[in-house]
Design a protein around this nucleic acid. Structure first.
Lengths: 291, 291
DNA sequence: TCGACTTTGTGCGTGCGTTCACAAGGCTTA
DNA sequence: TAAGCCTTGTGAACGCACGCACAAAGTCGA
């Protein structure tokens, strides 16, 4: 069976400005076994890290580096080397034992895996403060993504020009999605109108949604939703800050915090808890970002 | 080492300059957040959901509801009831068997747990498109958070008034952080200046950072970093879209999105591709893909 | 050509998070 | 008071993900 590999359009836009002798490597046929492995299941956790690896790899390309060890790349991506190796192993074997990974081929491979060999056209619904920023934020999509339409339910906003594009009414959504081949939508509406906007996107044929709205979205099977919740992120940080403050004040083991009835000193300012118990200043390390 | 020339470690800190084995060793350290949690044992995963529960609860308060069952609240928050019950159990028993949870007390309790009984003052560094939006986005912090300072390294931006606040130079950062009792900083700079800005925040005494910059940040022990990566989110969506498209086209096709063109069989919605296991009943369901 | 060295790829143990399923507990009604 | 019903809180099982540690596999120098 013919592998749907790089037919036509050869080199990706970001192909290393370098001569690139390994072009052949790109064409190299991928063993069926490997492909199946990759197809069958790349853990979601790994997929989520691929963009990070890709960014690190591109930086390396920029610097003219041709080969990296898992240790180096992992450090650049802020993860452990073992994790990185396993993640990459899900894509097939693209490293050379005793040497490391060839940057150029790896960039190409990861890009292809993420579907970045094609351009993804997206529509943005909700042109408020955030929506405007996202539309203008040239690099928010880095590469591979193009906003082909801005929409808003507010008649007052429709017609305005934002980032060189005219905001269109929701009524035009379906038509644009179809004609432009859009399958990803970005939602930047207030929480109240989020579900309605989401429904409109789905009805139009979008199957992937990135939402910034503070609302729980209900979507039909087959539609992916990724949610970025700014308020929540801050609240989570606040939780940790409070925890640190408590630890600094009282003894660990949540002296007072453990009790349901915690006499919260409402008036007490969370003063710089900069110097918790014992923080070895000056030592840098990456901080877990959980997920 | 394969790096052609890694001369001078003068490379900017944010550059994926990897060498430095000692740094790798330091990464083994246990994230501050996790360690703190261990003292009281609220799983990070649960903490991350508390804001969502809180939002749902507030909506219930708005509607005058006084009691909710775990089933109802879970549905409103988009999670399973068992998960919700366990999450809440980490905060202590605030439910009444046979009845459910009393909304008002629960709101108060969760709020207190998240540290929302006090106001968290934050500074925002990087007043570009995104920074401006965040500063203006009145409700992006919902409640409990107040932006008390905008900073930017660009002299051209300093002095401008954004959202009623004058942008100040980075030189003023430390002073503001101290005088205002800030411990959380929001980073909205380009990737290039992120590490420097982060360093400035940490040096000023900030111990919690929310970054939107596409860069891996290195921070000292005791500082929490949460990262929101817009480009990555889109790429992850793209990955899934590609997967669906491949599946729709027929069998487990190649790993590459071959066709640069013909992304979507116009008008045809890539039906079902459910990669999420079965889900209870309900026409609509929330789509997994959480972080 | 051979041996020493380097780094990948992965088997395996461990711990966390999610889910099931049910006993415990509390309200309501007779 | 006692029986019945409802929902919480949680013991236990399951599965995923992470990290260690090492054999395999390749490079480099003699």
């Amino acid at each position: 069976m013919s592998t749907p590999e790089d037919t036509g359009r050869s080199a990706p836009p970001w192909a290393p400005a370098v001569p690139d002798p390994s072009a052949a490597a790109l064409q190299r046929a991928v063993p069926a076994a490997e492909r199946l492995l990759a197809e069958r299941g790349i853990p979601e956790a790994s997929v989520a890290r691929l963009p990070v690896y890709l960014r690190a790899l591109r930086a390396l390309v920029e610097r003219g580096v041709r080969t990296v060890s898992s240790e180096e790349l992992a450090a650049a991506a802020g993860v452990g080397s073992a994790k990185l190796r396993r993640d990459l192993s899900h894509l097939g074997s693209y490293g050379v034992r005793g040497v490391g990974y060839e940057v150029a081929p790896l960039v190409a491979h990861v890009s292809r895996e993420l579907g970045l060999t094609q351009e993804w056209r997206v529509v943005l619904v909700g042109v408020g403060n955030l929506g405007r920023a996202l539309a203008s934020h040239g690099g928010f999509a880095e590469r591979g993504t193009v906003v082909v339409g801005l929409f808003d339910a507010d008649p007052g906003v429709v017609g305005q020009e934002v980032a060189g594009t005219v905001v269109r009414p929701m009524a035009d959504l379906a038509e644009v999605v179809r004609s432009e081949g859009v399958c990803i939508g970005v939602l930047a509406t207030p929480g109240a109108g989020a579900q309605a906007a989401c429904d409109a996107l789905v009805a139009a044929g979008v199957t992937g949604v990135l939402t910034f709205a503070p609302a729980v979205l209900q979507v039909p099977e087959g539609v992916d939703v990724r949610k970025v919740d700014l308020a929540s992120e801050l609240q989570i940080l606040a939780f940790h800050e409070q925890r640190k403050a408590d630890a600094a004040r009282g003894g660990p083991a949540g002296a007072g915090a453990a009790q349901p009835v915690d006499p919260v000193p409402a008036g007490l300012a969370p003063r710089a808890t900069a110097h918790a118990p014992g923080h070895p200043r000056g030592v840098r390390r990456r901080t877990g970002v959980s997920r």
